[in-house]
Amino acid sequence: MTADESAPTASVEDRREEWAGPVPVPTGANTEFWAATLEGELRYQHCDECGTAQLYPRAVCTGCSAVDPPFEPSEGRGTVYSYTVCHVPGEPGFGDRTPYVVAAVDLAEGPRLLALVDCEPEAIEIGDPLEVRFWQVSDEAALPVFVPE
């Protein structure tokens, strides 16, 4: 996708009033990533030097150490690489969500992202297609949350 093309966007649901879980704090290399989430856009870094695609955002490329790899818009689609069903809340704010699903999601563009999947635990299997949605949890960030296609 070129810079001229508009990136695909997903729905952003305002969860600021009810969210009691961890809240991202945009800083440094991840600022652009979190700003895009508020617009319903999932972004990943794609190195111009070596072609490495990476997510979570970092100040250097994990493939060649180039500084500040640029961001690209993702389709917001992926497949379940692996998952776990959490029956005991691992973070504050998740107690009323148990059981909940956390999955390693292989994005269509290559990076793998660990994310919450908004579905019943019995409704997910390895290889299932997913698409991203966003839960706005602060004025500065919306969490990427995946749902089955």
Rank of each mutant, 00 (worst) to 15 (best):
A20M: 01
S6D: 14
A35C: 13
E41R: 09
E41V: 11
A3E: 14
F71D: 05
P26F: 04
F146I: 07
S82A: 10
Q54G: 10
G78F: 01
L38A: 10
A141E: 01
W34K: 07
G90F: 02
D96I: 05
L38T: 06
C64P: 06
P144H: 08
P24S: 15
F33I: 02
G127I: 09
A115C: 11
R112H: 04
L38S: 05
D4P: 15
A108D: 14
A103Q: 01
Y56S: 11
L113I: 10
V101Q: 04
C47D: 05
H87E: 10
E39M: 11
T84H: 11
T84P: 09
F146T: 00
F134G: 03
D4T: 14
E120G: 00
D68Y: 03
E109Y: 08
C50F: 08
Y83F: 05
E41K: 10
S65H: 13
T2D: 14
L42R: 02
L55C: 13
D106W: 07
G93E: 03
A29H: 05
S6P: 15
H46R: 14
C61A: 06
A103I: 00
C50D: 10
E91I: 04
V132P: 00
G127K: 11
Q136K: 05
H87K: 12
T84K: 10
R15I: 01
T37S: 06
L130D: 03
C47L: 08
L114W: 09
P26Q: 11
V60E: 11
L116I: 09
G63K: 05
P70F: 11
T62V: 12
E18H: 09
I124S: 02
P148A: 14
G95C: 10
P89N: 08
V132T: 02
R15F: 03
P92G: 06
A53E: 10
V105N: 01
V23S: 03
D96E: 12
E140M: 07
V102D: 02
L130M: 09
R133W: 08
F33S: 01
E131H: 11
G90N: 12
E72L: 13
V60M: 13
P26G: 07
E149S: 15
A103N: 02
P144I: 03
C61P: 08
C61L: 05
E41P: 10
G93V: 03
V12N: 04
T9E: 09
I126N: 02
P111G: 13
T9W: 09
T98Y: 03
P70N: 14
T27F: 15
G76Y: 03
R112Y: 05
L114E: 11
P26E: 08
G127A: 09
D68W: 08
S138F: 00
P129L: 15
G127R: 12
L114S: 07
D48R: 15
A103Y: 01
I126H: 05
S74I: 00
R77F: 08
S138R: 00
A108V: 13
A20F: 01
E120N: 02
F146N: 03
T62N: 13
P129I: 13
A3L: 14
A36Y: 02
R58E: 12
Y44M: 07
S74T: 05
L42N: 02
Y83I: 00
P22R: 03
A10Q: 06
T52C: 12
Q45V: 00
A108P: 13
E39K: 13
